[in-house]
């Protein structure tokens, strides 16, 4: 499973940004993960906790926002949520769609607190 490597990548990115904001401490990291991304959020959090133990990021909470897969139909112009990877329009059955979201895999936000 690749969650460990991805958690390490997240830690690297956050540490680099945290350094620029020192001495403030990161207390929250919010990720956006699209439903289409093959990552298990619980495994990612577990790996993250193991990596940051005894580091300044130990107090940072990793939050995951799941981004649904949405698309717009290029025939009837309606927008909808795609579930179960069924890429066809629920209104007119067209398969000519433009996918709008669901592929995100990013660090959305960081929250800091001042050092006591």
């Amino acid at each position: 499973m690749h969650e460990t490597g991805l958690a390490q990548e997240i830690v690297n990115i956050v540490e680099e940004i945290a350094r620029q904001h020192s001495p403030k401490q990161v207390i929250r990291i919010t990720l956006n993960i699209g439903e289409m991304v093959a990552v298990v959020p619980d495994m990612l959090k577990f790996a993250f906790q193991a990596i940051v133990e005894n580091t300044p990021l130990n107090n940072a909470r990793l939050e995951v926002q799941i981004i649904p897969v949405t698309a717009v139909c290029n025939k009837c112009r309606k927008s909808f949520h795609i579930s179960q990877f069924e890429f066809s329009c629920p209104y007119c059955s067209s398969v000519d769609l433009t996918v709008r979201s669901g592929d995100e895999f990013l660090i959305k936000e960081l929250e800091f607190k001042e050092c006591p």
Binding site: K108, E111, K113
Partner: peptide, 14 residues
């Protein structure tokens, strides 16, 4: 407290 929005792709290096 401060919040910054970074929208940083986790797989950017890849």
């Amino acid at each position: 407290m401060s919040v910054i929005t970074i929208e940083r792709k986790i797989l950017k290096k890849n």
